[in-house]
């Protein structure tokens, strides 16, 4: 299994993401800089970390979505490579058109930084198969722009196709239909606002995020 973590200027959870992948897979992921025109060959798993890429200029994730490396990520996603975007990474995936909808300013206007309950809506996906259906897990959120928006037709389609991976147990940011994480049509791209990489070890206060990495890494190693 060959994994990479992309770092944009202003990413700040890239190291946490790399540590989480290494803890679970036993192998440190490659670190890729946003300006790299080409991704390393033969990647199985690409992670876009949280942070404030490009200072959230224009819109969160908008500038990063147009950076050179994202052309490679879009092409890799089309080939079926697993892509995980957390927080700012989720914002980048929507801005890049890999996931539908948009992440707007939190309804309460404030930055939210706390642990919230999340319901696993789909436990059949590449990223969630080590969770139980309907399991409620505790994962930290830390965002200002996590208010998921899509039109009704898109939301109906996401729900009908089982593409809502996680819902908030308490709607902390105004997201439509409590959506916290969604999959692409192929099931190989997941974007989510909460930070599973911050719930890997007991010292984090919880380990509920670990099964997400075990799901995707386990599936890729078995493949």
């Amino acid at each position: 299994m060959r994994a990479a973590v992309i770092t944009f200027p202003g990413s700040n959870c890239d190291r946490d993401m790399a540590v989480a992948i290494e803890k679970v897979s036993g192998k440190a992921p490659l670190r890729v800089w946003h300006g790299d025109a080409e991704l390393p060959q033969g990647l199985d798993f690409i992670a876009l970390p949280g942070g404030f890429s490009y200072g959230d200029y224009l819109r969160s994730g908008a500038m990063a979505a147009k950076s050179p490396v994202m052309q490679g990520v879009i092409a890799a996603a089309a080939r079926g490579v697993a892509v995980l975007g957390v927080c700012n990474g989720f914002q980048v995936l929507t801005e890049a058109g890999l996931l539908p909808g948009a992440l707007m300013r939190n309804a309460g206007q404030t930055f939210i930084c706390r642990t919230v309950p999340l319901k696993v809506e789909n436990n059949q996906s590449l990223f969630t198969n080590r969770y139980a259906a309907g399991q409620v897990i505790q994962i930290p959120v830390a965002h200002h722009d996590g208010n998921y928006f899509a039109d009704d037709a898109t939301l109906d389609r996401l729900e009908g196709d089982g593409r809502v991976a996680f819902r908030f147990g308490e709607n902390c940011n105004g997201s439509r239909r409590d959506i916290a994480g969604i999959l692409n049509a192929g099931g190989n791209v997941l974007g989510m606002m909460p930070h599973p990489e911050r719930a890997i070890e007991q010292d984090h206060g919880g380990t509920d995020g670990r099964a997400l990495f075990e799901s995707v890494i386990g599936s890729l190693v078995a493949a």
Binding site: L58, E95, P100
Partner: peptide, 9 residues
């Protein structure tokens, strides 16, 4: 369409 506005919202 490509950058300055997000046509979703």
């Amino acid at each position: 369409r490509k950058l300055l506005a997000n046509m979703v919202i």
